[in-house]
Simulated scan of single mutants.
Amino acid sequence: MKFPFYKGLVVFILLSVFSCQPKPEEVSLDLSAKKIKPALAEKMSKKFVNETSKLLMLSAEQDTIKEKPPYRLSVSSWYSLDELQSYINESKRQADSLGIDLNGFRIYVGVFPDEEIYGKKRNQMAFFISPTGNRSVQQGAFLLQEKFPGDIPEIDPLEYGSDGEPPISTYPQIE
């Protein structure tokens, strides 16, 4: 009769231990002041494509139209939820190991070099994400932090998302 009691006790202890483990904290901020309506997003996206296409086709030396833009235009980049969450988690771990307070991410626009090694992204506009944070700086007996979040070049930026199809498609892109 002792065996079932001990077995039950072990199960009870294991359940108690695992149910007491802290659950991942879900952050919930009021972003209502930072959101825009879909109609405005569509208007902004179309304006970007139209104006950028015009700019890229104007020659810097003359007011003549080139045959084609100097690089392929992209207006969006897509990342899965898992890719973004993994990148955020990895960036947090790396920043912690560097003694940097990770506080956000900056999104950059760039153009891949016109080199074969970049495949289909060769000579194409792209967006990449760079973690930002404040570094603690020792000055005398005081430990100070930078006033503005700076990029953390020790952590590789994330790019290689999927571009919209075709890359010049404007908002909204719906299946």
Rank of each mutant, 00 (worst) to 15 (best):
K2F: 02
Y6S: 02
Y6D: 09
L9N: 00
V10Q: 03
F12G: 14
F12L: 15
S16I: 02
V17Q: 04
V17G: 06
V17L: 11
F18Y: 15
S19V: 03
C20I: 03
C20E: 12
P22Y: 03
P22K: 06
P24D: 07
E25D: 12
V27M: 05
L29V: 09
D30F: 03
A33L: 09
K35T: 11
K37W: 12
P38Q: 12
L40Y: 09
A41S: 13
S45N: 12
S45C: 06
E51T: 10
T52K: 13
K54S: 04
S59Q: 05
T64S: 14
K66G: 05
K68H: 12
L73P: 14
L73D: 10
S80T: 15
L81N: 12
Q85F: 10
Y87G: 12
Y87V: 01
E90F: 04
S91T: 08
K92I: 13
Q94G: 07
L98Y: 09
D101Q: 11
N103R: 13
G104T: 01
F105V: 05
Y108M: 14
E115C: 03
E116Y: 12
R122Y: 01
A126V: 03
A126Y: 00
T132R: 07
T132E: 01
G133T: 07
R135E: 08
R135Y: 00
V137L: 10
Q138P: 04
F148Y: 10
F148P: 02
I152C: 05
I152A: 05
L158K: 11
D163A: 06
D163Q: 10
E165F: 01
I168L: 01
I168D: 05
P172K: 08
